[in-house]
Design a protein around this nucleic acid. Sequence first.
DNA 1: CAGCCGCGTTAGTCAGCGTTAACCTGGAGG
DNA 2: CCTCCAGGTTAACGCTGACTAACGCGGCTG
Lengths: 232, 232
Amino acid sequence: MVSMSTKTAGTAAPSRREQILREAARLFAERGFHGVGVDEIGAAVGISGPGLYRHFAGKDAMLAELLVGISRRLYDGGRRRAEESAAAGLSPGAALDALIDGHIDFALDDRELITLHDRELDRLREADRKQVRKLQRQYVELWVSAVRALYPDLTELEARVSVHTVFGLLNSTPHLSGPSALPDRETTAALLHRLARGALSSAAPAAEGSGGGPAVQAAYPPPGSEGPDTPV
Amino acid sequence: MVSMSTKTAGTAAPSRREQILREAARLFAERGFHGVGVDEIGAAVGISGPGLYRHFAGKDAMLAELLVGISRRLYDGGRRRAEESAAAGLSPGAALDALIDGHIDFALDDRELITLHDRELDRLREADRKQVRKLQRQYVELWVSAVRALYPDLTELEARVSVHTVFGLLNSTPHLSGPSALPDRETTAALLHRLARGALSSAAPAAEGSGGGPAVQAAYPPPGSEGPDTPV
DNA sequence: CAGCCGCGTTAGTCAGCGTTAACCTGGAGG
DNA sequence: CCTCCAGGTTAACGCTGACTAACGCGGCTG
């Protein structure tokens, strides 16, 4: 029964399972894990109630699969980009830009999952939660390394806190989907990128460059492959 | 029965009601509104179970009072600071700094409430939710005005989105209380301030100042009453 | 001293919800 | 044509958890 999950590798059809996961994610994000019943999830995909148990062991299993999946995708994507940046010999600034863009893609494409990711983590069984935490930690590590490569004067702790807050910044997009509509995706992504970059550039205490962030940024070699959205 | 609530104005003793609210906030933030039972809340204050109903109409009422209270305190505090800044003739930069510091105080002192504030809003009855949303909107307006005063080139929309994301940045402190301990309060506050300020200073698209944020920041007079944490 | 009343207690009710059980069905395979 | 089974269905069960009822008790007040 479980072995046929290999068939899900074909991304052709949404395969009911993924359909259920998608709707569950949306509902969980909207009203919280405890706030949504299995009947609602079933109704959202056209079947009713306990029919879900043909696909999942229980409500918890859905949440677990969602959270583990999201943190793994985040980490894998981040690591891939970091490795590509290193292989291409990009500047620290460009490497950080790549991480930021990856996270922004995620925050804009999978808002609900991002929301769930830091909201319902405690509802998981110990094993799953541990796994998610590990992936999260590794992802943070990726960022901390990238940030400290660009701003060597930052303390480990400063870098870590800054990275966390920047996650908070980037992950805040779901909140403003309601009242004030966002501009088009490209514009929003560019704005988020500037904000994140600006925050990180000001993380250093007082210091030596006297200009704050920009002075330090000027220290690394002129980025040849930088996109149009990093005017510095 | 309701009229005696005027006695609660005396802030001398924690008065059981406030004690309950405090514990409820902590528990709600930890495990979510649906995740905590009334018995637990009661146990947290030394009484057990339905004894709470001598003080509150129900679980919902506690959440409502918490959320309305927090948003009102946020808005009132923000407005007070904005008015003081205006009365004192402070520069736009100093006015924004005041708002930021106020929010940071809040985020550090009342982490649980901050968490609840953007997590469990949907569990409220229509009336309460409307009230909270109104206060939130007014608070955002305060910030948008302050930001646009300092960075006049920003679009209304850009400013609004930026403010929201900065809230996300500042409100992310609860997340990192667990694994990696924060430095002492003053240091953390200063770091958060720099990050927020840095983000906002980079909100503008490309543009004209050529120096970005710092150029504009240099335009306002040296802040006489500023603390040691605003070195600019 | 007597009675009221704020404040709690314990036992019980009742609804909601996750989960299970038992049954049904349409299409693929021998 | 019969069988099997993936994938549904509805009915029912059990538990949890919010809320109510009935009662108890100490401390002001008359």
